[in-house]
Design a protein around this nucleic acid. Structure first.
Length: 112
DNA sequence: ACCTTGACAGCGA
DNA sequence: TTCGCTGCCAAGG
């Protein structure tokens, strides 16, 4: 199983309403510290993949603010009940440092 | 083989 | 919180 396959599997494993950071996906794929490789794989992936559930470590959507892709991802997340404010998941007032840990702990969906 | 590019991250200022 | 800088590593030129 290639690294790319493990990354794809890790993304598939993210359930509806859940959100993970690139680094978390990399770690889950057995590739700690290789968040950028996750980004590469997603950029080149074609099929149905819950790519919209992967965001940056600070909760921001990775695509450029205002871009069509950023809008698409935000819409897909909100359709699953994830709160997205100003291109960022979760409560806007949640401190970035606590967010990463928070992403791990959400078995279902974030509190409003 | 060398250089540049990323859907990134952690840390200090 | 944002900015800058460093570390990271696979791809493509």
């Amino acid at each position: 199983m290639s690294a790319a396959d493990r990354i794809l599997a890790a993304v598939q494993a993210i359930g509806p309403g859940q959100v993970r950071s690139y680094a978390q996906v990399a770690a889950a794929a057995g590739l700690p510290g290789r968040a950028r490789q996750v980004a590469r794989v997603l950029a080149g992936s074609e099929g149905r993949l819950p790519w919209h559930r992967v965001v940056r470590a600070d909760g921001r959507i990775a695509f450029a603010p205002g871009s069509a892709q950023a809008a698409e991802q935000a819409a897909a997340l909100q359709a699953e009940g994830v709160v997205v404010v100003n291109g960022r998941v979760g409560r806007a007032w949640r401190p970035a440092p606590a967010l990463d840990a928070w992403l791990w702990q959400q078995p279902d969906r974030p509190p409003i």
